[in-house]
Design a protein around this nucleic acid. Structure first.
Lengths: 218, 218, 218, 218
DNA sequence: GATGAATGAGTTTTCATTCAT
DNA sequence: TATGAATGAAAACTCATTCAT
C-alpha cells in the first residue's frame, strides 16, 4: 500500500514513538482505556501490533507513557507561565498560571481527557496521576506561600484552588465554544479576595457564617 | 448445616438487593469497575452470581444502581443540611451545605470513590454522574443566586465552588485522620469573601492582577 | 392476583397438562427449542416454573411430550381419512389421506413447526420423530402395496410421496393464503400417473430419459 | 518438536479457513448446532478457539459460512449436471439433475446434514437455507417450464419434486449401503409420467380419485 | 398444590501478548 | 525492521434445575 512510497516508512524510532503516542492519546481519550484495544491503537498509528509492544511495551506501560507526556507538557506550560511574564505579585503569577492552565486544556482536550477522566479512577494510573497532580499543587502552594500564612493552610488552599481550576477546565472541555479567558477571570475574581484575606492573617476571625452548633455529619 | 436457621438463607428480595449493592459499592470502590468481576461481587455479597443478574441486571446496570443509590444519599444529605438549620443567609446555608458534604464523604468513603473516581471517566457512567452533579451545581447556584449577581456568573462560580469542594473531599478521603470541620472552614474562608464581592457587584472592576498583555495559550 | 377468583386456579392435573402443552407447542414453534427457556413456557402457560417440572418433567421430556401429542393427532387425522370415506381404490384413499394431511397441517401450523422444523435436526428428538414418520410412511406404503408392485418399491415410493407431501405442507405453512385443496390436487395429479404405472408392472421398461452412460457422482 | 518442520504450523489464512470449515461441517453435522461448542470445532480443526473467531467470526457466522460453502457446492454440482450431458429433453435433464443431486448427497453426507437437518428449523439459518433452496426450486422449475404448462403449476410441481428428492436423499443418507442410482431411477419413474401429463395439458381433467365430497380438515 | 429464592455448570466472546518468518 | 499467525486466560452472561416455604 503506502509502503511503495519511498522514504515514507522506516522512520526513526523516536518519530515512530511520537506517532504512536499521538494515536494512543487520541484513541484513549475518545474510547477510554478499557474500551480501547491495542489493535485499535496500532491501526490508528498505522503500524502493526507487535511494533507497539516493541516500542512502548504493554498496554499499561503505553498508557503511562501517554500520561507522562501529557502531564509533563501541562506542567511545563504552567511552570513557564507562572515564572515568566510581567509582574511578579502572587496575584499576577496566579493569574498567568490559571490562564495558561485553562488555555492548555482548551488546546489539548484529548490529553486532558486521558489525564483526568481516564487515569483518575483506575489504578495504577491514579497513582501516577496523583504524583503529577501533587507537583501541580506544590507549584500553586509555593505561589501562595509567598503571600505568607501557615504552610498547612496554603497547602489546603492550593488543593481547593486546583480543584476549582480543574472543575472549570472540565467545564471548558465540555463547552468548546466558551470564552476561556472570561472563565479564568471569573474564577480568579471568585477566589482571590478570600485567598488573600485568608492567607495574610495568621489566625483570621471566625467567619460570620458560623453559628455555633454542631450539625453532625450524616 | 446452618440452613435449619430460619430466615438466614432465603432472604426476601429487597434485603438481598441491598446486600448486593452494599457489596458492590465496597468492591467497586476498592478495585475499580473494570478490575472487578461480577463473581467477586457475588462472593462479597455472600450469594451466587446468577442472583446478581436476576435482581440487578448486567454489570453495567449494577454499577448504575450503585451510582444512583449513593448519589441520592449524597444529594439528600446535602439538601437537608442546606435547607434546615439556624440562620438562612447565603453564607450560612453554604457553610452548612459544605459541612454536610464533606461530612458525608468522610462517612461514606466507598460511595464517594464509586461516584467520583470510577464513574467520572467511563461512559456511560460519566453521563449518569453528570446528571447528578448538575443537580448539585444547581443547588449551589440557587444559594448563590439569592446573593444577587447575574445567573451566568453564579453558575460558573457554582461550578468552581463544587470543584473546590470535590478536591477537598478527595483530599479528605485520602487523609482519613484529617479534621474535616477545619478543612471545611478553611475552604469557606478562602472562597466566601471573593464570592460575595464577585456576585454582589454587577460588573466588578477588573482585578489588579491583569496586566494587559496576551500570553497566548500553550 | 387471579388466585382470588374462586374456581379458577386449582385445575385438575389433566387440564393443566394440556394447558402447558398448548403453551409449549406455541412457544416452541415460534422460537425454536433452544431459544425457548422454561421460564417462557411457564409464563405462557400462566403458572410457575416448578409446576412445569412437576407435571411434565425436564425441558427435553416436555418437548417430547409435545412431539407425541402433535404426532399422534396427525397420525389419527390421517388414518381416519384414509380409512373412511367414499371409494376404496388406492387412488381415492391416497387422495383422502393427502387432503387430510395438508388440511391438518394448515390447521395446526404450530404443531407442524414443532414436529418437522424443530425436531428434525436435533437429537434425541429426531429419533422420536423418525419413529412417527416411519408409521406415516408405512401407512402410505400399505396403500400403495394394495396396488401391487414389489414391497421395496412401494416403500421407496412411499418415502418419496411423503417427502413431496411434506414439501408441499411446508409451502402451505409459509403461504397461509394458499388454496390447500388445489395444492393437494396438483400434487396428486403430478404423482398418481407415475405411481400407478411404476407400481403396477413388476419390471417397468427403462425410462426414455436414460441415455446409457455413467456420469459418475460428484 | 514438530515446529521445526516448515510450513506445518503457521499456515496461511486461506488454508486454515478451509480446515476450520471442514471441521465445523463435520462436527456440526454429527452433534447439531447447539450441542456443538466452538471449543470442539477448534479442537477438531487442530487450532485454538480465538483463531476461529478471528477468521470466521461468531459461531453463528461460522455456521452460515458452512451453509454457504456446502450449498454452493451442491448447487454447482446440480447445475453442471443439468446443463451438460447427452440429450437435452426435459426428462433427460431432470434425470441427470436427480442423479447428480443424490450422488452429491451420498458423497457429502456431512454437508447434507448441516444443510438440511440442522439449518432447516433454526432461525436465522432457515432463512439462509430457504434462499438457496429457492434457487434449487427455480432450477427445477425452469426445467419443467420448458415442458409447458402454466408457471404456477410448474412451481408447485417443482416444490413437490424437490421435496420428494430430499426425502429420498434423507433416506439415502440413513442407508449408506443403498443403491443410489436405483433409488434415483425409482423416483424418476414414479414422478415423470404424472409430471409430463400434468404439465403438458393446460387444464387436465379432474382426477378419477375425486369423489365430490368434503372431508373437512381435522 | 404452588412458588420465590437460589445455584452449578457451561458457553460465547474478547484481548493482551508472543512467536516464527 | 516488521508482521501475520497463534493462543492462554479470563469475563460476562444464561439457563435448566432444585430447595424451602
Amino acid at each position: 500500500m503506502v509502503s511503495s512510497v519511498p522514504g515514507f516508512r522506516r522512520l526513526p524510532r523516536a518519530v515512530r514513538e511520537q506517532q504512536m503516542l499521538d494515536a494512543a492519546v487520541r484513541v484513549f481519550s475518545r474510547q477510554g482505556y478499557h474500551a480501547t484495544s491495542v489493535d485499535e491503537i496500532a491501526e490508528a498509528a498505522g503500524i502493526s501490533k507487535p511494533m507497539v509492544y516493541a516500542y512502548l511495551g504493554t498496554k499499561e506501560e503505553l498508557f503511562i507513557a501517554c500520561l507522562h507526556r501529557e502531564g509533563l507538557r501541562l506542567l511545563e506550560a504552567l511552570g513557564a507561565a507562572a515564572r515568566g511574564g510581567p509582574g511578579s505579585g502572587t496575584d499576577q503569577r496566579l493569574w498567568r498560571g490559571l490562564r495558561a492552565f485553562l488555555g492548555f486544556v482548551a488546546a489539548h482536550r484529548d490529553g486532558w481527557s486521558v489525564l483526568y477522566r481516564q487515569a483518575r479512577g483506575q489504578e495504577p494510573f491514579a497513582g501516577v496521576l496523583a504524583q503529577m497532580r501533587l507537583r501541580l499543587v506544590e507549584i500553586v502552594a509555593d505561589m501562595l506561600a509567598d503571600c505568607s500564612g501557615t504552610p498547612g493552610d496554603a497547602a489546603l488552599a492550593a488543593h481547593a484552588l486546583v480543584g476549582a481550576a480543574e472543575a472549570v477546565a472540565d467545564w471548558v472541555v465540555d463547552h468548546p465554544d466558551a470564552d476561556v479567558d472570561r472563565a479564568a477571570e471569573r474564577l480568579m475574581a471568585t477566589v482571590w479576595l478570600g485567598l488573600r484575606a485568608a492567607l495574610s492573617s495568621d489566625r483570621p476571625e471566625p467567619g460570620p457564617w458560623r453559628s455555633d452548633e454542631d450539625p453532625g455529619a450524616a
